[in-house]
Design a protein around this nucleic acid. Structure first.
Lengths: 209, 209, 209, 209
DNA sequence: GATGAATGAGTATTCATTCAT
DNA sequence: GATGAATGAATACTCATTCAT
C-alpha cells in the first residue's frame, strides 16, 4: 500500500501540465495553431495567462508538447500485437483495425492528426517528428502485416511502396472527418458501420480471389 | 485578326484578380489562413498591399474567393461521365478515378482540399459551401456508380451510407499528402503506382467473388 | 446681347472648380475634415478622384479653398450698410440682423462656420484667416453699431471688449445648430420666431431704460 | 487611519481609466476625433498603446467614455438650485449663470461641448445622449426659470420655444471660444467682464420695462 | 508558485496622392 | 484635360510575452 507523501497543492502542481495540455489540445484542434489564443487556453484550464509560461517556454513549445504528449503514450501499443499474434493474417488485420478505431474514439488522437495535417508546413521539425513517430511507424506495421499475409499465401501480391497509405487512408479520413465537416452532414457517420464495411471491402481486396 | 483596344493597364486590370488568386492560393495552402500575410500575397503577385484591396474587400473575402474560384470550374465535369457511360461499371470506375487523378495533378484542387480541411472549423459558412459543392456532389456520384454496379450484378451488396467515404478516402489522402508530409518522406509517392494499386485492390473489394 | 464664344466643354472646365467646391463643402460640413474622403467628394461632383488634383494641390488646399471661396463673396456686403444707414440705430440693428439671417439661410455660411469651429485647432493658419476675415470684421461692425447707438443716446453704456461676442452669440449658435443637433430635436427651430425674439430681447437689453 | 492593502499596480489599475480619460479628453478636444492617434493618447497618459485596450474596447468606446464620464458628474447639480431658490427670479438668474460659469472654468465641460459640436454628426447615438442629458435638461431648466419670472411678473412675455437657446447662446459660445479661436485674438476675453455684461444686458432684456 | 497589468512587435486596413494611358 | 489603377505611409487593433507583486 503506497502512501502519497506530497501535500495536495504539490500534487496539483504535477497535474497542472496535463490540464494545460488538454485545454490546449482542444483549442488547437478547434481553431488551428495561429488562431489559438493562449489566454483562452489558460481560461479553459482555469489558470492565468502567466501560469502557462511557468510550464511551457512559449506558444510553439506548448504546441509541440501537446503533440508529443498525446502521441507518445499511444505509439507502442499496436506494434507488439503484430509480432505476437498467432492466428491468420485476416484475423490479425481485423484485430488491428478494431484496436485502432477504439483508440480513435478518444478525441485526442484524431484531433492531433487533424492538427498535424493543418500545421505540418508551418512546423517542419514537428512534422518530421510526427512523420517518424506516427506515420512511418504505422506504415511499417502495415507493411509487416501485408508481408505476413503475402508469405502465408492469404494475400495477393501487393505493391508495398503504396499499399500502406491506401489501406490506411479510410481510417485516417475517419479521424480527420470528425474534426472538420462532420457538422455539415445531415447524418453522422455510424462508426461501426463504417468500420465493418471498410474491413469487408478492403479484406476482399487484399485476399487472394 | 483582332486588335486589342484596351490600354495596357486595363488589360492588367482584367488579369489582376486571377494573378492575386493564384498567389493567394499558394500561400494560403502553404501557411494556412491565419499565418498568411497579405503583404506576402501582394509581393508574390508583384503588386502592393493596397492593390489587393481594390479587388477583394478583406482577407476573409480573398480567402473565400480563392476557394470558390478554384472549385467552381472543376465541379461539373465528371458528373455527366457517369450518366453517359456505356460500358461495364468496372470500366466506368477506372475511367472516373483516372480522370479525377488527372485533375488533382494541378496543384490547385489538392491545395484547396488541404486548405478546407485545415480551416473548415474557422469558416463554417465556407465549409458548408465546400461540403455541398464538392464533397456531397462527389459522394452522390460515387453512390450512383456503386448502385449501377450493384444493379448490374458486378458489385457485391454495399452499405451506401459509408462506402462513398471509404472508397474516396485514398484519393483524398493523396491530395492532402502532397501538401503536408510529402517533404518528410524518403521516397516520393509514385502517383501512377499508387493509383494502379488503389484501383486494383478497391475493385477487387467491390466486385463479386 | 452678349455671345459666349467658349465651346461648352471649355465653359464646363471653368465651372468645374465650383462644382468641386460645392461638393467638398457639403461633405466637409457633414463629416469633418479628417473623415472626408476625397473619393466621395469626387463622386459627388461627378468626376474621378484624379480630377480633383488638377484643380487643388491636395486635401488641405481643397479645404482652404472651400473656406475662402465660401466666405469671401459674403464678407463685404454688410459693412457699407452701417456706414450709409440714415435711420435710428435701433432700426439699423434690425436691418442688419435681418440681412445676416437671410444670408445664413443658404447652408454654405452656416456650414463653414460649423466647420471652422470644429477644425480651427487643426488649421491654425486657416483659423487666423477666418478670424481676421470673418469674426473680426463682424465684431468691428458690431462695435461700430454699438458706438453709434451709444453716441446717439439710444443705447446704454456698454463694454465694447465683450459685447460683440455676446450680441453675436445667438446668431452664431443658430448657424452651428442647424449642422449639429437639429436632428435630435423634436421640433425644429422656427427661424423667424427665433430671430424675432432675439431682436426683441437683445434690443430691450441694449436700449436705455 | 486606513491602510491600503492593494499592491501598487492594483492601485494603478484603479486610477488608470481616469488617467486615460483625461489624456484622451485633452487630445480629442485639441485634434478632433479622427485626427486623434491612440498612441498619442497612450503616451500622454504614460502608458503603452496596448494598455488602452485593457480599459476601452476601441477608439469609439474610448470617445464615448470620455464624453459620458465628463458629463455625468456635472449634470444634476444646478437643477435643484432652481427648485429650492427663495429670492427673486432676477437673483436666481444671476446665481445660476454665475454657478454655470464657474463650472466652465474647468476645461472639461467646455472641451466636451466643443467636441460634441464638432463630432455630433459622426456619432448620432452620442449626439442623442448629449442632447438628452445636457442640452435638453439645460433648456428645461431655463424654461423653468423664465416661467418663474413671467409668473412673478418680473419678466416680460417670452416665447419659450426659442428663448432658452437665445439666452443660453452667449454662455455656450464662451465655452466653444476657449477651444477654438482664442489663440487668434489679440486680447483674451476677460471672463468676468464677459459674464457681467452678459447678465446686465440679458437681464435688461428679460425684465419688464 | 500564481497572477494579471503592461508591453510592443506585427498585421489588416484605409486613403491621400501619383502617373501611365 | 480626364481617368482610375496602383502605391505605401499611417493607424487601429491583437496577442504572445514579461515581470512586479
Amino acid at each position: 500500500m503506497s502512501i502519497c507523501l506530497k501535500p495536495r497543492w504539490a500534487r496539483r502542481k504535477d497535474a497542472r501540465p496535463q490540464e494545460l495540455l488538454s485545454a490546449a489540445l482542444e483549442i488547437f484542434v478547434e481553431r488551428g495553431y495561429a488562431a489559438t489564443r493562449l489566454e483562452e487556453v489558460a481560461r479553459k484550464a482555469g489558470v492565468s495567462k502567466g501560469t502557462l509560461y511557468l510550464y511551457f517556454e512559449n506558444k510553439e513549445e506548448l504546441f509541440k508538447a501537446v503533440v508529443r504528449d498525446t502521441i507518445v503514450p499511444n505509439i507502442a501499443q499496436a506494434e507488439q500485437l503484430i509480432s505476437e499474434f498467432q492466428g491468420s493474417t485476416k484475423e490479425l488485420f481485423i484485430e488491428l483495425i478494431t484496436h485502432w478505431c477504439e483508440q480513435i474514439s478518444a478525441p485526442n488522437l484524431a484531433g492531433i492528426c487533424k492538427l498535424m495535417f493543418a500545421e505540418a508546413s508551418n512546423f517542419p521539425e514537428l512534422a518530421e517528428f510526427y512523420y517518424a513517430e506516427v506515420i512511418n511507424r504505422n506504415e511499417l506495421m502495415i507493411i509487416q502485416l501485408l508481408e505476413r499475409g503475402m508469405q502465408s499465401g492469404e494475400f495477393r501480391q501487393l505493391d508495398l511502396s503504396v499499399m500502406p497509405k491506401i489501406v490506411t487512408a479510410p481510417i485516417v479520413m475517419l479521424m480527420l472527418w470528425s474534426n472538420t465537416f462532420s457538422c455539415c452532414e445531415p447524418h453522422a457517420i455510424v462508426r461501426d458501420d463504417y468500420v465493418r464495411s471498410y474491413i469487408e471491402v478492403i479484406l476482399a481486396g487484399l485476399l487472394k480471389n
